[in-house]
Amino acid sequence: MADTKTVAPKEGPATQFWNWLTETQVWTSVFRHDRPDTDRNRVLVMLSNVFLHLHPVRIRKSGVKLRYTWCMGGLSFFLFLSLTLTGLLLMFYYRPTLEYAYTDIVGLREHVPLGIMREMHRWGAHAMVITVWLHMFRVFMTGSYKPPREFNWSIGVIMLVLTLLLSFTGYLLPWDQLAIWAITVGSNMARATPFLGYEGPGAQLLRLGDVPLIHAADDARFALLGGTFVGEGALLRFYVLHCVGLPLGIAVLMAVHFWRVRKDGGISGPM
């Protein structure tokens, strides 16, 4: 009878290092589970990590396919994160005043070696508008807005509007000809708001005796621009909305959106 001897496989230096690393106090304090190659650890990895915990542990097979979701919601989210990061870096350099706004952008362009933050921010913003549209389109085409996901669709529509407003407010900040005229054309619409814009239908009706209540210096457009034309007030307003107000709003809604995707039973599929 031949001897059966079990020989431990020879461990290379990489494996040895890995084994050592994953047993250190630092590593075990961060990751509370072994590698996710057993069912138990695949559950643990999702549950013990706050970011991965956005996901469920298991999911419909159809739902992980690119064919079904096109990954468009995920890409919208990723683009949003990358815009937050590049936007933060841009804020180090940019001052929203008539004096500095344009020259700061010129400086970013001329003096920052290999600088592509402005490009990444601008093209990322365009891309996000497109991915959000396509995400909405996919959700429609798979009928995923139907019960029980009606409310999440509504949240989505609001986020779509916020995405466009983020892009619109950002458009003004370089303070070049492209910027102020695009915003002028866009914000001129507010002047025609029924009742609330001074050239809107019905605004004349709102008057106290001879005194019109709605005029160029207090109508909807004025509220938007902080002035009667696209000037200093508009720049500051758009800057604050672009860097603080709208991102906060959309971030909160994203939290609700993702939460609801899970609470509504995960990615949709046929009953």
Partner: peptide, 21 residues
């Protein structure tokens, strides 16, 4: 989608797709 109703593990099936995207 009906034929693909069974569940798969999010790790690795989904997280890797996300990472690659």
């Amino acid at each position: 989608e009906k034929a693909e109703s069974d569940r798969v593990w999010v790790w690795p099936d989904l997280v890797y797709t996300e990472l690659i995207s």
